[in-house]
């Protein structure tokens, strides 16, 4: 109750954390929902699917390593279903897609999916208001959790929503994502205006994710990091595409638009500092993949301390 009040109070941007109840609010979820809605309605929306499709593909490799078939899979923050589209009917019969952006959710018709899909328009941060606890066999999330304010709470909700021995497989942007853009904008603002403001989201680090997954009560954790590198003609093309993906800035708090001088300066710095020899500029998307299981008595457990029969010295 208190949490939902805090969230309601935090929705109008301009005053982050007015009463500091509940989790710290970093992102303007409402602005993000509008950005994603608009992005999905844009004509060229499908042309900027390349990052999500690539990461969905790499997530699917990890999913295929899990030798199990599922009745239903819940795709949290599915967008237009980048991961779900790759699912084969042999592995999962049905997928429930949840996203806070209704336009993104309904962008692609059912005919593009091989599995049966059900779409639910709902907030990823309030998963347990959408599904019952102990109800899901598997939850997947492809590039959505990096816009969640309450990441620890969301992970706990995912674990709660799972049945015992249920699977969570997630991918989110982290760490060094867009560090080239971040540094170029910071240097430009520092040199032109004498101070910096945040324009690129803060990102979770890999070690944070391991800790958060453990804290949320998942067992048998696997966390790994991978990069998607994309070359763009210039910084402007990168920013255009980010906007078209619905991945524009959605930080809460007093917004200061970048001045055009500063943008031009950032473009020059981006090329000088990070540019490729052929004149293009690289952008790094670092993706953290996480796999965790809801604990169950049937899972392999570590042995009791002191029950080892073979001295370690003999083995080494």
């Amino acid at each position: 109750m208190l949490r939902s009040l805090a969230r309601l109070a935090a929705v109008p941007s301009g005053s982050p954390n007015p009463s500091t109840l509940g989790p710290f609010q970093v992102f303007d979820r409402n602005a993000k929902r509008l950005q994603k809605d608009r992005a999905a309605l844009r004509e060229g929306s499908r042309t900027v699917d390349y990052v999500r499709d690539e990461v969905a593909d790499r997530m699917m490799e990890r999913f295929m390593d899990i030798k199990r078939t599922f009745g239903t899979v819940l795709d949290l923050g599915s967008g237009s279903g980048h991961f779900t589209k790759l699912l084969e009917p042999e592995r999962a019969k049905k997928v429930i897609m949840i996203d806070s952006s209704e336009m993104a959710l309904h962008r692609d018709p059912d005919s593009e999916f091989e599995v049966q899909v059900e779409r639910i328009h709902g907030d990823e941060e309030n998963l347990l208001q959408i599904v019952e606890p102990n109800s899901q066999e598997a939850v997947v999330s492809c590039l959505s959790l990096h816009w969640v304010n309450d990441l620890p709470g969301t992970l706990v909700q995912i674990r709660e929503a799972l049945k015992p021995d249920g699977l969570f497989l997630g991918a989110m942007f982290g760490g060094d994502t867009l560090f080239e853009l971040r540094t170029a904008l910071q240097l430009a603002e520092q040199e032109r205006e004498g101070g910096i403001a945040p324009h690129v989201s803060p990102m979770a680090q890999t070690r944070d994710i391991s800790n958060l997954m453990g804290r949320a009560g998942f067992s048998l954790l696997t966390v790994d990091v991978d990069e998607v590198n994309v070359a763009y003609p210039d910084m402007w093309a990168l920013m255009d595409d980010l906007g078209a993906m619905g991945e524009g800035n959605a930080l809460l708090g007093p917004r200061r638009a970048l001045r055009r001088d500063t943008l031009a300066a950032a473009s020059a710095i981006y090329s000088a500092l990070h540019g490729n020899e052929d004149g293009s500029v690289p952008a790094t998307f670092q993706v953290i993949y996480m796999i965790g299981w809801k604990p169950a008595p049937t899972q392999p457990q570590p042995l009791e301390r002191g029950t080892g029969k073979v001295p370690l010295g003999d083995v080494l």
Binding site: T47, E54, V228, W236, A244, L263, S267
Partner: peptide, 23 residues
């Protein structure tokens, strides 16, 4: 990997700024 989009229209002011600042 190359993005298929990246349009360079010279209509919007920001697009013109983009063009002039890089070309």
């Amino acid at each position: 990997m190359n993005p298929p989009s990246a349009t360079t229209t010279t209509q919007r002011p920001l697009a013109r700024l983009a063009f002039h600042s890089t070309a």
